[in-house]
Design a protein around this nucleic acid. Sequence first.
RNA 1: GCCGCUUUAGCUCAGCUGGUAGAGCACAUCAUUCGUAAUGAUGGGGUCACAGGUUCGAGUCCUGUAAGCGGCACCA
Length: 671
Amino acid sequence: MFKISLPDGSVREMPEGSTPADVAAAIGPGLAKAALAARVNGEVRDITRPFEEDAELALITARDERDALELVRHDFAHVLAEAVQNLYPGTQITFGPATDDGFYYDFAPAPGRGPFTEEDLPTIEEEMRRVIGRDEPLIREVWQREDVRDFFRRQGESFKAEWVMELPKGEPITMYRSGKADHNWLDLCRGPHLASTGKLDPQAFKLTRVSGAYWRGDPANPMLSRIYGTAWLNKKQLAEHLTRLEEAAKRDHRKIGREMDLFHLQEEAHGSIFWHPKGYLIWRELEAYMRRRLDAGGYQEVKTPQLMDARQWEKSGHWGKYRENMFIVPDEIPSGEDEGPVLSGDAQLMALKPMNCPAHVLIFKQGITSYRDLPLRMAEFGCCHRNEPHGALHGLMRVRQFTQDDAHIFCREDQLVEEVALFCDLLDRVYHDLGFDKYAIKLALRPDKRFGSDEMWDWSEQSLRDAVAATGRNTAEFGWEELPGEGAFYAPKLEFHLTDAIGRTWQVGTIQTDTVLPERLDATYVGEDGARHRPVMLHRAILGSFERFIGILIEHHAGRFPLWLAPVQAVVATIVSDADGYAEEVAAKLRAAGLRADTDLRNEKINYKVREHSLAKVPLLLVVGKREAEEGTVAVRRLGSDDRQQMMPLDEAIATFAAEAVPPDLVRRPG
RNA sequence: GCCGCUUUAGCUCAGCUGGUAGAGCACAUCAUUCGUAAUGAUGGGGUCACAGGUUCGAGUCCUGUAAGCGGCACCA
């Protein structure tokens, strides 16, 4: 007999060979039906896996949503694999994990069949529902490694056969058998799984897309065909999720950018942005704001060359590692003859800067720097070019020309922790000003391929840890965690991840402790002792790039910018043409008060104008008709406000809006 | 760069098995002066991404190129 302790403190005696399912049945039929899996001594296990000793047991039901979703999604992946092999014999199975909203499974299509396409998905969904409908038991079996390999070899499953031989020693190798006597399907899987496929809700999943994916994530390996699905505990959750996806699609920055006439992209300059007047107004407001914050933070702004001799990039170490992503420009005047050679072949090579750091070091090296000058904070809104892999480009989020809010802080080792902590505070201020309440901080640690000694890395990583601790932000509230292997090749980095209005996260800010580049480019300062010393260089950005950050702002606000950032802050719309003169006067006064205001005097109904400016996401709509013109008032309609309108005397309206439109760093707080 | 899909008017899209291009919105003109999310009429607008090929005939079929989209990989 085993003693099984339950969460309520009670203990049940169960005979050997009994399972958590038996315990559930003993407690009651309702629980037996609801139980999906079991937590045995803290480990999630199959509900039908027998106890091996006395144990603490907690039964997992749909109420334990996190565990239940993970289990269910993993099962859906399993069902997907079985369905695909039923439909398309000869397809090899590989991997199929749960994801944040569902699951995927990677297949190697049968020879001659080619990858799966979206058109295959309905058929596969149907077959999955049949597998679920058959309510096939999922049975865990422990196998010998070689037996698994031989089994899969016989099936022609080379990927699984390869994989099983590399599983860590010491863990039991488990196979899951699904189906009944007449139909058997086996998969190598650590589990756990639900007791049977019938535990899944056949209406709670949807196959969403197909894609290619490299076997084990390595481009040197074959490309597999991946099928993605989203999966939930029930139909209602699935419907809610699909609605969330639609909402996210509505705030897509590319769509809103077109609708609000902010920017466009076109083939002739793919990966670079054409900013339209309204989009560039947002940029200018954001840049002006950042410049004020940096000025107040003791930064000095500089501007450095777009083109530099390739040899400079060799010295910095970027040429060797990133040349294929740099735009190379020959320093040569091409032949004026139409037939003449464009390049002589021995032209001096130059490169468009992919980053600003080496140029900042070159400024630092001009003259002699004393320890008294440190820390020296050098900022640049630096326009950089990187020839990104074409498949990576994405709207404003990943582009080939971008402007970083870059800065480099040259400091002494003993100043480093304080400088990093100051940066964290500045960044915190900026994110809150820009409407983000929540962000996470991660520490990316040394990668396998790197410059510099282990001692240097130990020290750099520890300084960043200490600095975050000094600001008290190394907590769960800030999602603090360390990411092994994620650092840059020359430095560990702190990453700052924003959470937007619909819960997505975006890595934007960063700060990196670099001792390699000052060494390579021989930057020095004169210390108190009169000797030359090596400064530490902090690379840091708060927004990352203006392009991407504005993309994030668009999606975060769904185009409804806070007043100070809105490209058009107010439109004065007339009801009758008799009010035209008054409308012009109102607009002129708004502009005189520093607001970006347009008039709409068109011969259209007010309904039409209200609709149009609402869709254009103009924050303030000032409606004027005969009445307002006579009384010197405006009828104010605020975007997204429930109150239809508010009558205000003109002077009061202007004073109110002018105060509301002040950027957050310029707001005068009372007292 | 890799896998799949897509590319028709400024935008969103329709165009069946090949027979020579359509809608709504937008734009222009006219009428309408109408108090809070679309007033009506008329009109202009397309080398069907680009380059080849098959065919009596190609938006439609085939090949290549480019860009876009969804992923993978990459992201100093």
